[in-house]
């Protein structure tokens, strides 16, 4: 983790003051500016802008000029301008997504950046799964996630910016390239990728907007349930079942292993809510395929996170330690392949 200096905070505050003034058409006082946890390369800052006596709770999403991204992140993650337009389309389509307000310009000098409204709630799975205030919400989350996902997938493609189309075969090829780049033999991941390759679902005639990182940790919850879906930087066009499978990967259950839907419900509960909200009928075989895929995907992401440290692009004990989590997905893959052969 980089320790950001007061100089950086002062610069961000000054630029936000100017940009917020431009957007609201009146002078803005920037208050409570603080950097949220997160990577050095893709920053999130929280702040309030007071304009004409009215307080706006806002978030700055910002990529400083290139640092610390792996080849794979450069290949799969969308830039901030595209993320802004995806958020706009999803928000306008009625998805519980943060409302994007305005983009910063190159002359502002903060790198690629935009500002959106801040929504209440927390994302910390440990608290959501165990703390008393969320008891009522816990029973609703799986169903709400199904409903919201149906709405994301129904976003009119004509309203979206150009996005990469990624089908099963593209994903498999991408993960094999990652393994080759890491140059450390991974028999279980190779086994799973060949299993996936032999059974891959046919590409859809009409691919949909796929969130790409729809999982516990990437949505906010308050006492009433899910308030907003975050982290759209892996959005692409593809198979809607990809998001359903990813949500059920065991790594996001945080100990609630008998509740596959993000730690909060059954697969069937998730699928039923998705179908009721207008999503297509979920084929359990296809969903299993994407859950296996998601499990390999997370395992290889763990190796890549460690590689960021090992290659010297980010000096981080936290990143290094994530490499030792890859084996958790190897355990899960051997279980999954036994179940669904």
């Amino acid at each position: 983790m980089n320790v950001h200096t007061s100089t950086e905070t002062e610069t961000v505050a000054r630029v936000l003051g100017e940009a917020t003034h431009r957007h609201f058409g009146a002078p803005a006082a920037i208050e409570d500016l603080s950097r949220q946890s997160g990577g050095a390369s893709r920053q999130t800052w929280s702040f309030d802008a007071v304009v004409n006596g009215e307080r706006h709770a806002l978030i700055l999403r910002r990529d400083p000029p290139a640092q610390g991204k792996t080849e794979r992140e450069r290949a799969v993650a969308i830039d901030r301008a595209t993320e802004f337009r995806v958020l706009r389309a999803a928000h306008d389509a009625g998805v519980r997504a943060p409302e994007p307000l305005f983009e910063l310009t190159p002359r502002d000098g903060l790198g690629e950046a935009y500002v959106m409204r801040r929504v209440g709630g927390i994302a910390i799975a440990r608290k959501l799964l165990r703390d008393a205030p969320y008891e009522a919400a816990r029973g609703r989350i799986a169903g709400q996630l199904g409903e919201i996902l149906a709405r994301i997938h129904a976003t009119d493609p004509a309203t979206l910016p150009p996005l990469m189309r990624r089908e099963a075969a593209d994903h498999i090829a991408g993960l094999r390239r990652s393994l080759d780049a890491l140059a450390q033999p991974q028999p279980v991941f190779e086994l799973a990728l060949t299993w996936l390759d032999r059974r891959k679902p046919a590409p859809l005639d009409r691919p949909v907007l796929v969130h790409g990182d729809y999982r516990t940790g990437n949505y906010l919850v308050d006492e009433t349930g899910v308030t907003t879906i975050l982290d759209w930087e892996l959005a692409h066009l593809g198979d809607p079942v990809e998001d359903l499978g990813w949500l059920c990967v065991k790594s996001w259950r945080f100990g609630a292993i008998d509740k596959p839907a993000g730690g909060f419900g059954s697969r069937e509960e998730l699928w039923a809510a998705y179908e009721r909200a207008g999503g297509g009928t979920v084929d359990p075989v296809r969903a299993h395929w994407w859950e296996v895929f998601g499990t390999v995907h997370w395992g290889i992401i763990c190796l890549n996170q460690a590689w960021k440290h090992l290659s010297g692009s980010i000096k981080s004990m936290e990143h290094a330690s994530i490499g030792r989590r890859a084996v958790e997905t190897e355990v899960d893959l051997l279980q999954l392949l036994k179940q669904g052969a």
Binding site: V188, R325, V327, E328, E330
Partner: peptide
Amino acid sequence: IADKIAIAN
């Protein structure tokens, strides 16, 4: 994998 996870987690 049983030996690996016994060390890692």
